[in-house]
Write a protein that binds this DNA or RNA. Structure first.
Length: 541
RNA sequence: GCCCCUGUAGCUCAGCCGGACAGAGCAGCUGCCUUCUAAGCAGUUGGUCGCAGGUUCGAAUCCUGCCGGGGGCGCCA
């Protein structure tokens, strides 16, 4: 919460206390009204608290205003009671000027940084696409989300480690091997196999033995290299690549099963072993060992999560899955409770499906069929920044619909250009400043109170909001809020740029200095936000 | 049948821990380049917030039911 907002909140609490009422801070809000006529800040406290005092909202509002007029907060100019009982705060614009001075003073590294996480160790697992083929657009979509969330949480003071879980074992690897060998022998790949063209390309390179496991592992490694390369193009790097096979080979999976058995949570049906997950809220019990004696995917996944919490000591784990893995959520949570770890420490975010629109056809994809659109094609076409920003513009809870033709053909309409252009204009102003040899005076001699044009004030207000947006986006795991802020802020900057010349014969030098300062602050803000999304700012366009 | 998302302008989406006349971009229509990049700015057209109840001083927002869309309920991974 900003200092000003905090001060108002505290003052309102004091006012209520003076009337003998103790209120919780979450009981009311101090917000920025959508309309500037309603002041810089506004509170609903009189409306929600009126019944506690047996008063009418407006008369309580009057009492509060009287108190606050006696005990004003910093920058307070006047108060207004409006509508059903809102208290509107009109402030001296110096609160914005002081805010700007602070932004410029602390700079890009510290502005909009929060200590919300207090250094808590968080593990963030995302993407984790099976190495049975190249990444498709949907994988890249949620990979961008995961990467942005990691950046966001780091900025909020969490100690984040990102991880890609490599599913490099099991039936799918055998199936991949079978498909590879079939291609090498010139046979058709069967219905259940991987039919994409990439299998053909790999088959041409494979010189190993006629063994489905060896061939499968070989192909998976090749695919993984391609996946790393695609992610690299998007600017995404993982701290850890964790192998599923390594978990199985370490004996950790047996360990988990016996741990659960010792708690009486496993029943045996011949060779099969069933985890009584319904006791922890799952909708049905789950097999951990199959009839043939192999572990199920879930068994390995539980061991993997045990490893995250207990072996590696993460305080919190966030998994980002596609909505098609929704079925795992209840089972994993059940297992965490069964193992005494606590399901509340495991946060599973589900990314809704991404579908692509080409012309009027909604395309359906399948990795096995091989009819997917590779992530790399999109990145090569529109660039990493646009790819990221596109996927980060909407909520994870909403099934995204991407219009391929539109994105490719009319990429000028992509919001990334709008935002980049704003940054490029800021940089351009500074280039002109340097070309003309304008040297900024000492900071203390710049009169920021000259910034009173509506465009300047609007820009300043939005800049001041960024720290709160960062905290909110981090707390709610919603990086798209940063993207929305960027669009809004860029729009305000374009308006300012159009209406308020910074360097011109028609502008007094004192005002030029103040505006240069504003531009510097804006540049800090936009660069912080872009960095959170992993988008590279452009100096010129 | 059960579980998770979702239904807001012609299209893509914000707003959803209740608040003041429902927002943006795109598409459409009108204007604006002799000064820091017109990939821009300004204006304008366009909405029974899926439907019906309920809670409330106040509901797009909360609750219930219904209708529609996506995903999931494997000894696949």
């Amino acid at each position: 919460m900003s200092d000003v907002r905090m001060a108002i909140t505290v003052a309102l609490l004091d006012a209520m206390e003076s009337f003998g009422v103790q209120l919780d801070r979450s009981f009311f809000v101090v917000e920025r009204p959508t309309r500037i006529e309603h002041g810089e800040f506004s509170s609903n406290i009189a409306m929600v608290a009126a019944s506690k005092l047996g008063e009418k909202p407006r008369s309580l509002a009057e009492k509060i205003c009287a108190y606050m007029t006696e005990n004003p907060v910093k920058y307070q100019q006047r108060l207004e009671i409006a509508g059903p009982g809102f208290i509107n705060f009109f402030l001296d614009f110096r609160y914005l000027h002081d805010g700007l001075a602070q932004v410029v003073t602390v700079g890009e590294d510290s502005f909009a940084r929060s200590n919300m996480g207090s250094g808590a160790r968080v593990q963030l697992e995302f993407c984790s696409a099976n190495p049975t083929g190249p990444l498709h657009v949907g994988n890249g979509w949620w990979a961008s989300y995961g990467d942005a969330l990691a950046r966001l949480l780091r900025r909020c003071g969490y100690d984040v480690s990102t991880e890609y879980y490599v599913n490099d074992t099991g039936g799918q690897i055998r199936r991949l091997g079978e498909s590879l060998l079939a291609r090498r022998a010139g046979r058709e790949v069967e219905e259940e196999g991987y039919q994409g063209e990439y299998v053909k390309d790999l088959a041409d390179l494979y010189e190993g033995p006629e063994d489905v496991v060896v061939a499968g592992k070989w192909a998976a490694e090749r695919n993984l290299e391609a996946i790393r390369a695609s992610l690299d193009k998007l600017g995404i790097n993982f701290d850890v690549w964790y192998s599923q096979a390594s978990i199985e080979e370490s004996g950790a999976v047996e360990g988990i099963v016996s741990m659960l058995a010792s708690r009486g949570l496993i029943i045996e049906e011949g060779a099969r072993k069933v985890f009584l997950s319904t006791r922890f809220g799952d909708s049905r019990d789950r097999y951990l060992v199959k009839e043939g004696g192999d572990f199920t995917y879930l068994a390995g996944d539980i061991a993997y999560h045990y490893n995250k919490f207990v072996v590696r000591g993460f305080q919190r784990v966030i998994d980002i899955f596609g909505a098609d893995h929704h079925g795992q959520v209840a089972s994993l949570h059940a297992a965490m409770d069964a193992l005494g770890i606590g399901s509340e420490r495991l946060e599973i975010l589900l990314g809704q499906m991404v579908s692509l629109l080409s012309g009027s056809d909604r395309l359906k994809f399948s990795k096995r069929k091989g009819n997917l659109i590779p992530l790399e094609d999109l990145v090569d076409e529109i660039g990493p920044s646009a790819t990221r920003l596109l996927s980060l513009s909407t909520s994870i809870d909403r099934a995204a619909l991407v219009d391929i033709e539109k994105v490719k053909a009319e990429s000028m309409d992509n919001p990334v250009y709008y935002i980049q252009y704003a940054h490029a204009r800021m940089a351009s102003i500074e280039r002109v400043r340097d070309r003309l040899g304008i040297v900024m005076p000492d900071f203390s001699r710049i009169d920021l109170s000259l910034l009173v044009h509506p465009r300047e004030l609007a820009l300043l207000r939005e800049l001041m909001v960024l720290p709160e947006v960062v905290e909110e986006a981090g707390a709610q795991r919603e990086p798209y809020k940063i993207a929305n802020w960027l669009k809004e802020f860029s729009g305000l900057f374009h308006s300012f740029y159009h209406d308020c010349y910074v360097i011109s014969d028609a502008v007094e030098m004192e005002l030029t200095y103040a505006r240069l300062c504003l531009v510097a602050g804006c540049k800090i803000g936009i660069r912080v936000a872009l960095s959170l999304l992993g988008v590279e700012p452009l100096e010129q366009m």
